[in-house]
Amino acid sequence: MLIRNLPLLLILASGLSHAMNTENLPESTLKAYGQSLAVGAGSSQWQQLWQRTRAAGYFNQDGPQARFTLPMKLIPELVSTTLSDAHSVKPDKGTQALYRRDFAPRVIGAEGPDALTAICLNVDWRSLPEKTPTNDSGQMGSISLLLVQPCQ
C-alpha cells in the first residue's frame, strides 16, 4: 500500500517544501502580499471566508464570544482594508499570517461587555510559491482567507 502511494506522497512533500514560510519573511513583505491579495482574491475566496467566520460564531448577535456588532454590509470593506493596509502582520503556524488593523475609535465588535475596535484576519499562504513577487496579484487566487474576527 505504501509503495503504491509513494508517488503521491513525494508530490505532496515536494509541494510543501516550496510553500511560502511566513516565519522567514519581514512584516513589510507580508503587508505587500496582503495588498496583492486584497486586489487579486476572487469571490469564492471571500465566500469561503464568510462561511468559516459565520460557522465560528463571529456574526452571532448575542453571547459572550467575540462577535461583530456592525451591520454585515459594512464588514467586507473593513476586512479588505485590513488586508490591504494592516497596522501589523504576525507570522503564524509556518504558512499563515495574522493581519490586524485597528479602527478606533470606531467599535467593530464586542466580547462580553468589552468593545473591540480592531479586525484580525488569518490568511494561509501555503499555496503561494516561494519568491513570488509581492505585486503578482495573479497568483492570489489559491490563497486561503481563513477566518476574520473582531479583536483588541
Rank of each mutant, 00 (worst) to 15 (best):
V79H: 01
R54E: 15
K90W: 10
D102M: 03
Q48D: 13
T117R: 06
M140H: 04
I75R: 01
A115P: 05
L78M: 13
R67P: 01
R54W: 07
T134M: 02
A104Q: 06
D62T: 14
I3E: 12
T22Q: 05
W125R: 11
G94F: 12
T82R: 04
L98M: 11
M72L: 13
D102G: 07
F103V: 03
Q96N: 10
N60R: 10
S44F: 04
S144N: 15
S127F: 12
R67Y: 00
A41G: 06
L78I: 05
G15A: 11
A86M: 04
T29P: 01
L12H: 08
T29S: 10
T95Q: 09
A110T: 10
W50K: 02
A32G: 05
R106N: 04
S127H: 11
N24P: 00
L2A: 13
G94I: 10
L12K: 07
N122S: 13
F103D: 03
A118V: 04
N24R: 11
F103R: 02
S144R: 14
E27H: 03
L146D: 15
Q47S: 13
T53W: 02
N122Y: 04
W46K: 06
T69C: 02
L16S: 14
Q48M: 09
M20R: 15
P129M: 08
L70R: 00
T82D: 06
P129R: 07
Q48L: 11
C151Y: 03
L6G: 03
A118Q: 04
L128C: 12
A55S: 10
K131I: 02
D62P: 00
T82N: 07
E111A: 10
G42E: 08
L6P: 02
G63F: 02
A41Y: 04
R106E: 09
I143Y: 09
Q152G: 13
A13C: 03
G109C: 03
G15I: 05
M72N: 14
H87G: 15
L25T: 08
G40R: 07
S44T: 11
K31P: 01
T53E: 03
N135I: 05
P64T: 09
P133R: 02
R126F: 10
L146I: 14
I75A: 02
L12E: 14
L6Y: 07
Q139K: 08
T95C: 08
T82Y: 01
F68I: 00
I75F: 00
Q61G: 14
E130M: 12
P105F: 00
A104F: 09
L147W: 01
L10K: 06
S28C: 05
G40H: 08
T81L: 10
G94L: 09
P91V: 09
Y58I: 00
E77I: 05
G34Y: 06
M140Q: 11
P133I: 03
L10P: 01
L2I: 13
A104H: 08
